[in-house]
């Protein structure tokens, strides 16, 4: 990967545009061999109201690649680590499968991969990003809910979005400093 300590990858989500089509979920499965029944990303659907006054909202979620990732902090072997560009990954060879990181993730973003017998989660498609491509879920999304980029780069669309729009993050109280930004 190109070493630039100054980089910080984040994802901005415009949930209002999410149509719950699951393209991102399936794309991730294909790109990252996610086992059946396990998910690196998912859509939180909320439906409410009474006929005919109804509401539904869809919020995509995945690993938040936290600024202070509690998963990394608790990992006894250092298998969970954070790259200079903020991407949080699991080094398979070092993971003993103690699942402490799973317990420690406020977003339940991690799962135990029965096939590899180690803990698994969203990697922001680091392997694609390192080739200069977008994460699979971002590239495939029909309604462009997802914008990925380097927040330190003023030319990056994420930068522009966060400058120009109001947004929120999930569970800020955990102090993890999540890096998925949800536009309001």
């Amino acid at each position: 990967m190109s070493k630039t300590a100054s980089r910080r990858y984040v994802m901005v989500l415009d949930s209002r545009k999410c149509i719950d089509c699951k393209a991102c979920v399936v794309a991730c499965k294909a790109e990252n061999d996610v086992p059946l029944g396990r998910f690196r990303n998912w859509i939180n659907a909320e439906r409410s109201g009474f006929y005919p006054r109804l509401r539904a909202s869809f919020d995509p979620e995945q690993c938040h690649h936290c600024e202070n990732p509690s998963c990394v902090r608790v990992c006894p072997t250092g298998a969970s680590f954070q790259r200079e560009d903020g991407i949080v990954e699991v080094r398979e060879a070092d993971c003993i499968g103690c699942k402490y990181c799973m317990v420690a993730c406020p977003y339940n973003a991690r799962f135990f991969n029965e096939e590899t017998q180690v803990v698994d989660k969203c990697t922001f498609c680091a392997h694609r990003v390192d080739r200069g491509e977008l994460p699979a879920c971002v590239e495939t999304c029909p309604s462009r809910v997802r914008t990925f980029g380097d927040i330190t780069d003023p030319k990056s669309p994420v930068h522009a979005l966060l400058e120009g729009r109001r947004y929120r993050v999930l569970k800020p109280q955990t102090g993890n400093g999540p890096q998925l930004y949800y536009l309001l």
């Binding site: 990003v129 200069g132 977008l134 780069d153 030319k155 990056s156 979005l161």
Partner: peptide, 10 residues
């Protein structure tokens, strides 16, 4: 894409 969306901005 990374650069491109950069150019594309918002």
């Amino acid at each position: 894409f990374l650069q491109m969306v950069g150019a594309g901005g918002l």
